[in-house]
Structure formats: C-alpha cells, structure tokens
Nucleic acid binder design. Sequence first.
RNA 1: GGCCCGUUCGUCUAGAGGCCUAGGACACCACCCUCUCAAGGUGGCGGCACGGGUUCGAAUCCCGUACGGGCUGCCA
Length: 470
Amino acid sequence: MSAPRFRFAPSPTGIFHIGGARTALMNWALAKRLGGTFVLRIEDTDEARNRPEWTEGIIDSLAWIGISRDDPTFEGPYFQSAYADQHVAAAQRLFDAGHAYYCDLTPDEIQQRAAAEGTQGYGGWSRDRGLGPGPGRVLRFRVAAGTTVVHDAVRGEVTFDNAVIEDFVLLRGNGSPMFLLANVVDDLTMGITHVIRAEEHLPNTPKQQMIWEALGHTVPQWAHVPVLVNEQRKKISKRRDKVALESFRAEGYIAEAMVNYLMTLGWSPRGGEEIVAWQVVEDEFRLEDVNLSPAFFDLKKLAAFNAEYLRRMTPEQFAEAAEPWLAQWRAAHPGAVWDQQRFLAMVPVIQPRVSTLAEAPGVVDFLFLPHPQFDEASLAKALATDEAAGIVADSIAAFTTCDWTCDAINAAFAEVAERHGLKLGKAQAPVRVAVSGRTVGPPLFESLEALGRDETLRRLRALPEGVRVP
RNA sequence: GGCCCGUUCGUCUAGAGGCCUAGGACACCACCCUCUCAAGGUGGCGGCACGGGUUCGAAUCCCGUACGGGCUGCCA
C-alpha cells in the first residue's frame, strides 16, 4: 500500500480561518503518523492570483501552528490553474464515455421550464438530444439512476438518492471547468487518498464521487468533520465572528495552546487530560473518534488553555515569548525607561496573572514608567484615608534603613502595619497606590525590590505634591 | 420547499447494553491559602431533547416527533 496523501485546500480569502486551521491540523496529524504527505493546494480565484500575499499568509499561518513547508511531510503549495489542461481533458473523456452531455439551455430558460412544470432546478431536458459542443453550451454530468453511498470515516455510510441530484455542470458555456470538476481532477492527478474537510461539503460529495468513479478511479477516504459554530450555533463566518488565526496570534495567544484547544473541539485525547503535547495528538488522533455535532469555539476556554501554557513556561521562555509585546509597549511609551533585569525579576509573578502575552506589559508597566499612572478610584480608596499619610511616612523611614530584599522589606513593613494596628493587606494599600498607581497588581514587596530603594523612596516622597490624577 | 447531518451539564467532552447514583475540563458560586490581584487547594451548582419500542436491563440499539445546523449557481 502506498503512502497516504492528505490534501488541504483552503479557499484564499485573505484571512486564515480557525476552522481551516483545525482541519489542517487533523490532516497534518494523520499525515505525520501514517508517514504520508500533507498536500497544500490553493484554490484558484482571480483575486488570489492577484494577491500572492494571501497565499503567503496561509503558509505563514500554517507554519505558526507547526505545519511547516520545510517539513518533509509538507508538499506544495499547488495552484489549481496548474492543472487547467487536465480539467478540460477529463471533461472530454467524460463526454466521450457518455457520462456527460452538452446542453444549450440558459439559466433563464431552465427557470421558465421548471416554473412551467412546477418543479425546481434543471430537469435533465437535454439528456437525450445528442448535442455536440458549441458556443454557450455547457457540459453536464449524466447522473445515473440509483443511489450513491458515501463512506465517511467520521459519519459512516451516508446514502443519497441520485434522483435528487440534478445533472450538474462540468464545463461552463465558455468552456472553462467548474470548481467541482477541477477539484476532483486535481485530487486524482495528485494521488490524493484522504479528503478531510468540514461537514458543509458533505452534500457535494456524491457529485464528486460520481466524477471519480466515472473517470475510472476509486474514491478517496472521505471524512467530514463537524463545523465550528458561534454562540448563535451558526457556522462561524468571517463577517460576524472573530475567526482569523492571525488575530489570535497578535493578541498573544501562543500556537501550542491554540493548536491544543482547536483539537479538543470535536475530539479529545485518551486518558482524560485535555492539555496535551502535539505528539500525543499525533499519536492518538483518529477520524473515527471525531464527534458528529458542531462545536462552539469558546474564547474563555481558549484563554484558560493559553494561561495554562503560559504558566508552564520557564521564566526565560516566557520573557522571550513576550518580547514582541514588550517591544510594542516600549514603542507606545517613549518616556519609559526599560530595564530588562528588572523585568526578568518580575516574570515569575507575571506568569500566573496573565492569560495572553499581550497582557504582560500591563502587569508591571509602573516599574518602567517615570511616574505611576494614578487611577482616580484607587487614589480615593487607598490614599484619601486617615492612616494613609502616616503609613507612607513610616514606610519611608522603614525603607530607608532596611535591607533591600523582598523578605527584609516585608518584615520592615510588617512593623509599620502593626504600629498602625492594621493587617498587612490593609496597610499595604497606600504604599501600593503610591508606587504603582493602582490598588491591584503584582505582589508589593517583590515589586519594590525590583523597583529599587531609591525609586521607591522617591515615589513615596513625591506623593503629597507629585500626585497627578489623570 | 427538497436533500443531508446532528442532539450527554451554560460550553467542550468521556461514555460502543449492565462498571452510570452519567466522569472530566472551562465558566460560575462558596470556602481555604494569602500583602492586593492572581495562581493553587477543597467543595458546590448543573446534563443523557421528547415519545414509543427492543431487552431481564438503555445515555448507549430501532422507529417517530421536536428542535438545531448544513447544502441546494454556467460561485469557489
């Protein structure tokens, strides 16, 4: 048995869809495990031909989720137009063998006839007229009587009554091949053995199967996986929903989390653990195990996956992964003074507090800004209290002399709190706001240690007159 | 309208006739931990769409109903 070949044929629209990413991943997992090939074929449209960057975008997105063109399993990209001659040649063979016939009825005429007969669609009126090719004449496939059974790896046998499948068009009036034909011819000339795609294509499958068989080939293994839906339970669409893989990437979702989450939609790894390495997916993914019903793409769960992946990183990995977003932050805050060592020291406390990399700068931004950005509510809540001034004054005194380590700062401040008869949690608020501008944030003493004694004292002293409410 | 597909907690899933008093994850709630916020820990809430069969026994098999979705071009 020769090695299986999986084709992935996204329609180029300028964005690469999360749904497309999921089917690509399924194809990829199987191609890898079975020692097969992942064949990328770009559908041929005028727009796509004029915009090579769309194709590059698809390749780039695939690479991000681990489907790299540099991997020997990857083949392509191919473009449909590369086989244009064969599309027409195949149509000719179909005609010669009697599997197709010409029809000169225009869409309008077909509609009129259907209306007159009280039916819908094309009624096969030209079937036995023996027409030859000619301008304006379309070539239609002669659908045989009986039934067509599609053997689907996900859904089992699906039976279609051929009587409800009209004689569909293979070649347009201008002689150009229809997508359906082109698709099948491409698949068989490229030796495709597995067609894994979204369920929406299931109704077209019997037509494609008929062409495969009429051309004398055995059909590939079909597999129609359920679509991804939005909260309204409608198929996600780029008009209504956020579906671009790239937008998730730009928001700081990491590829491993995205890949892992996407694969849990309609399928789950054995063993009950759903956060798994790609290798597990590669080892365990089976089409027979894919669910039959549509899955809702849940942003919250994706975020949870992403947060988990972020927490599992080493501080070094996290810092490296976050760098693009840090750079972005620096560019947006020219007045800030970046200190990489200071950032690195804070990474362990940032990690459990973010669910995307894009949130990382916001957790510790006050450490690099020349002045904290005070938020009004925090000021009122923590600094406009009776004890606040005293605590700040005592803190200045304590911090001037204590050792400058997290533990020492903690101990020194504990004494201040006790002197004021307050719990640590309550007492730290004014200091936190004085230093960071907010009532919530990373652990105070770690932050102060990272900030340094001088800057900490400066901010505390600056408070009475230096406070600026935005 | 026709054809096709689907239906387990709010969401994603485990479940292939007795292991199911239906398990896990996300979300939500409570408590614990705690220098705020997180993270972590413990617990809670919550589901087999409905009706008939088949069977000693059904979330699992069959039929029907309801609801949801997809497809129905000389688009790709």
